[in-house]
Design a protein around this nucleic acid. Sequence first.
DNA 1: CTCAACTAGGTTTTT
DNA 2: CCTAGTTGAG
Length: 751
Amino acid sequence: MGRTDYLDKLNDKQREAAMCTEGPLLILAGAGSGKTSTMTHRIAYLIREMDVSPYNILAVTFTNKAAKEMRERVQKLIGEGVNMWILTFHSACLRILRRHAEVLDFGRDFAVYDPTDQKTVVKNICKELNIDTKKFTPSYFLGIISHCKENRISPKEYNAIYGTDFKEQMVGNVYERYDSTLRKNNAMDFDDLLLKTVELFEQNEDILEQYQNRFRYIMVDEYQDTNMIQYTFVKLLADARDRDGNVRRNLCVVGDDDQCIYQWRGADIRNILEFEKDFPGAKTVKLEQNYRSTANILAAAHSVISHNKGRKAKKLWTDAEDGKKIIYYNADDEKDEAYFIAGEINRIEGGSEMKGSGDYRQFAILYRTNAQSRTFEEALSRRGIPYRVLGGLRYYDRKEIKDMMCYMRLVQNRADDLALVRIINEPKRGIGGKTLEKLRTLAQVRGTSLFDVLLDDDVISSFSSKVSENLRTLAGLIETYGIEQENMKLSDLYDGLLVNSGYLKALEDQHTVEAESRIENLMEFKSVIVGYEKEDPNMGLAEFMERIALLADVDNHDSEENAVTLMTLHSAKGLEFPYVFMPGMEDGLFPGWRAFDREDGLEEERRLCYVGITRAKKRLWMTSARMRTLYGRTDYTRESVFLHELDQNLLEGDGIYERKERREDGLFRDGASGRTPIKPFDQLKYAQAQTKKKAAAMAAAAAADFAPGDKVAHAKFGEGTVLEVNGKVIRIEFKDQVRKLALGIAPIEKL
DNA sequence: CTCAACTAGGTTTTT
DNA sequence: CCTAGTTGAG
């Protein structure tokens, strides 16, 4: 037995969980209760005390970030680097599938299609089937397809079950074609990674056994967010038998039913609620001591989440001080909200708590939707506060990055028609719809990939000399690098493709600001590649693609960077910050409208709110805006249900935070401020209000522009109308669009 | 075939 | 507000 003093850092419950190594174990870990610490210590304990080889341990998480953190912390505990499977569900499956691809009739280098690729595939199918994509959007089909895959309904089964009406037949048709297209392209989507792995296990007992024997100890993080297929994956691996026939089930799952926020994506909260039923003899350990937040923050979180029904009984407690109260600010509009938050960050940073240390990493602004980030970016940069935005448009979704990735994908996997179509005329090679159509039909008739058609010189020669020349060059390029990739450095391959494809030159010739920034992005991508190379000098193309395919934007951020963090509440799960802002606390935004479609939609939003509140260590702000412009429309709002549910005693003052400063542009009259009284939330009224909302909002917006006694003037301005109040231009109506203008436009007299 | 100009539609959350 | 798709002129 080694020294176990590293376990002293754990509290009794945590230690109990860490040292319980055999049989099924459920760790109900409340927010901030030292979940990761417990898990990593458990792994360390297995290795150091129970003589378990790291080789025999599998730990799965949902995010790369969580996997990375766990690995780092385990390494710290047991010393040297360990080659252990601490991976996300998807990357674990991907690894398994690469090894056994042939068994499933896939090529070893199958591609992984991201949502953009999926959309393209469905779009093409819709075109083939003459489906009006305005009536049925690609995402409509993809939603159903994904749902099917999560619940293991094959296209055949779907048709058998649902083939009744026209719409369902159409969906079934699309699903079937989607599936065969991916297979033909030697590609899998995210859902496939799990689905095919489960199928592999079920259809090949020997392979399953091989993994069962290897992974004798399995741990699952965020178990509350597992869906049906993930559950099956875990169950298959855990239901192993020992030599003497006993079921082993050394499965440890960790989670918190209050933090289940992915039900909309198929997560099944029952997995955690019924763990003890699924795995008889399971032991349950509850971690209820919170080490993260002040007592006030914890109480606030509790006052909100306790409105949910059907929770596992547990209550977090803490030794920490009460701390400051929660600040609520009801802003005029989203700009005012953003300026307030920027001001508060300045105030705290320069205040007694931080004494101007300039450490902006301590702040986070957590919003419901990515669309909200813009206003904050503006307000923060005006005040010179550094920030970084996570999520939103993914780095790898940028056109130029995707294009280069497609070049690389094609080199790796020539059957990837999607990639070829994307880059065949990028840069411009004079290949339009007609040429492409010809190639497509040929490929279809011959039953080969598009690329194979390009290699047929007879075909190529039939085009005009310019086109055929270009196509030959392209095909040659891909072919050459296909051969050379083996003994090439990854970054050289990238450079080679970038230059020899003409992609870089085409951008350089544009001489526009946009092209410049694209080139910059491509250079940045190169440094990403070089970074990977440094990590592993032998990294091949396949491995690189694999690593990058499953990367989310959130994983890409540098946590060392001194900046305020802006991200969605969803991405914030698992993180913590001393100072947290939760803007947009308005019905319709948070909780979002869609929450009312589902039976327990509101409960899920409430859990999201709980997640947000419990991210805060020291202080928490909540804000709302009385008027909000989102997606170009301005609407009046009302305060979020969650604000009403919050224990009002925990709010500073009586819930009203007096504004410290006014916006200097003077768009709003002083008399306009004032707080809507708190009324109990009434869902029915709320729904009715929604139907009348548009008309009311339009009338209200018009009335809001001026008050009785204001000097109002209209004037024609080109094709639009200018509205001026008290000598200041408020807005311009242009055709049917209303554009609010930045100040600085000339007053009417001067027009 | 390419480019620019315009229109229409869609906007929660992610591996 | 965005962007993706369409249209029409070169």
